[in-house]
Nucleic acid binder design. Structure first.
Length: 473
RNA sequence: GCUCCUAUCGUCUAGAGGCCUAGGACGGAGCCCUCUCAAGGCUUAAACCCCGGUUCGAAUCCGGGUAGGAGCGCCA
């Protein structure tokens, strides 16, 4: 049987990091087994579902490159006819029944049970039993439909991550599968969808484990074979607290804004909870080939920004610069820099990637290649731009102006020769050049920097630095 | 309250009874290299939640604690 997995978010917000990892695991498991990865939008809660959220989720998935194999994702709101049909079928088969309890009645029941330190649960007052007389249906109540859950026996779940979990049916009550207005509820929709979509492996957050026995029971009542389940633990914040809107929960697109590469994000996420021996870095192909549930941790994991940065840096350093350029371009524009007004992006990337953990850093540190300097870094200027160095810069400008060829090699020889000729260490010369040309004392190797900056800009900036010093005096 | 889940360095994890004096990675500390910042190389500190049991032998199996977490909706 070929594997079919799905990612089924409810569109009530952006795609957060935990959702992204669940989606990734589902994607990898399907791809690694030659199966299909499907997308489904669980939008039965009309109150909270929004089109903006749907778009945000797709945007995040697209950025990460986690595309579903169904051309059109499935929307639960478009399947109401099907749900209604299954509910009728269950009503007819006696595996579901109408319940006329009002919400007030239910609230009172729950409150009473809590007060008695019992697990709150429906008491089955409208559940048909042999020889039992049901109350007379009140005329003013629109009945809900409840699932007729087995009273005894147990559900044994062989979870791919957590192992065997046993639930007593006696712990479960008769959950509502259709509201008073006839619309179906979550646990029911999930079951029907997973069945209709032919899902073989349900991979989801472990906040769903307690729903699983109910879903399995409904599946059985429908005569369907339950899929395999894998319940993934939560991702916690760096402080070990649960991530929430108020507490550090960020959308994946915010990680883009922070300068992460999508592939690096995936790599960090896949290692959060999953391991393959001592390997830290994986290509997407490796992830697909090696991912499995034997090595997914059952305990929650904290999101460690430092490690994420490190992974990102590894990608920046080893990825094809042409690929990085797409993201780099986005970041440059984002800080108001026109990438066309300077050297080729891949060439800049090759020079900068060793010293930048994020693309935000890279963009900031590369700004001077594309735009005119908006002043010098104060400390760096104070340290490196003075009468002494200005004299050197003036001389150097003439020397460089005379260069027949503007290449990194030629510049290397020229600058080194210049320093040696004056009995100076290279640092004595390179640092003032940096401040003059880059606005700060940090840049790639000086020969590469000047080469990429170009002849005109270099000479102009050297001269500008000289007049800056003169004016200051 | 009830049900369910989890528990190895600060963090992510390796570990499927002897290979563990517990390995790797991030981060930390130190040294080397060096035109800046990095990168890189080397060295180093740092953990099996507790108590019982099974066994010749337990980080690994079992039981009980403890501590975290999730769920108990006409939300998903």
């Amino acid at each position: 049987m070929s594997v079919v997995t799905r990612f089924a978010p409810s569109p009530t917000g952006f795609l957060h990091i935990g959702g992204a990892r669940t989606a990734l695991f589902s994607y990898l498991y399907a791809k690694g087994h030659g199966g299909k990865f499907l997308l489904r939008i669980e939008d039965t809660d009309r109150e909270r579902s929004t089109q903006e959220a749907v778009d945000a989720i797709f945007e995040g998935m697209a950025w990460l490159g986690l595309n579903g194999d169904n051309a059109q994702p499935i929307y639960q709101t478009q399947r109401f006819d099907r749900y209604r049909q299954v509910i009728q079928q269950m009503l007819a088969a006696g595996t579901a029944y109408y319940c006329y309890c009002s919400k007030e009645e239910l609230d009172a029941l729950r409150a009473e049970q809590m007060a008695n330190k019992q697990k709150p649960r429906y008491d089955g007052r409208w559940r048909p039993e042999a020889g039992k007389t049901l109350p007379t249906p009140p005329a003013d109540v629109q009945p809900v439909v409840r699932f007729r859950s087995p009273l005894d026996g147990q559900v044994v779940l062989q979870d791919l991550i957590k192992g065997e979990i046993v639930f007593d049916n006696a712990e479960l009550d008769d959950l509502i599968i259709a509201r008073g207005d006839g619309t179906p509820t979550y646990n029911f929709c999930v079951v029907v969808d997973d069945m209709d979509m032919g899902i073989t492996h349900v991979i989801r957050g472990d906040d769903h484990v307690n729903n699983t026995p109910r879903q399995i029971n409904i599946l059985k009542a429908l005569g369907a074979t339950p899929p395999a389940y894998a319940h993934v633990s939560m991702i916690l914040g760096a402080d070990g607290a649960k991530l929430s809107k108020r507490h550090g929960a960020l959308g994946v697109m915010e990680y883009r804004a922070m300068g992460f590469m999508p592939e690096a994000m995936l790599n960090y996420l896949v290692r959060l909870g999953w391991s393959h021996g001592d390997q830290e870095l994986f290509t997407r192909e490796e992830m697909c080939a090696k991912f499995n549930f034997d090595h997914v941790s059952a305990s929650p994991a904290r999101f460690d920004m430092e490690k994420a940065y490190w992974v990102n840096h590894q990608y920046l350093k080893s990825a094809d610069p042409a690929l990085v350029a797409t993201e780099f371009d986005w970041h440059l524009r984002r800080i108001g820099v026109d990438p066309a007004q300077g050297p080729d992006l891949p060439a800049v990337i090759v020079q900068q990637r060793e010293r930048c953990r994020t693309l935000v850093e890279m963009a900031e540190k590369s700004k001077f290649f594309f735009a005119e300097l908006d002043g010098y870094n104060e400390k760096d200027a104070a340290k490196h731009l003075n009468a002494e160095s200005a004299a050197l810069l003036a001389e150097l400008a003439s020397a460089l102006e005379a260069l027949p060829q503007w290449s990194a090699e030629a510049l290397h020889l020229a600058v080194n020769g210049f320093a040696e000729g004056r009995g100076l260490g290279l640092g004595k010369v390179a640092q003032p050049i940096r401040v003059a040309c880059c606005g700060m004392a940090v840049s790639p190797p000086i020969d590469q920097t000047l080469y990429l900056l170009g002849r005109e800009r270099t000479l102009a900036r050297l001269k500008a630095a000289v007049s800056y010093v003169q004016q200051k005096q």
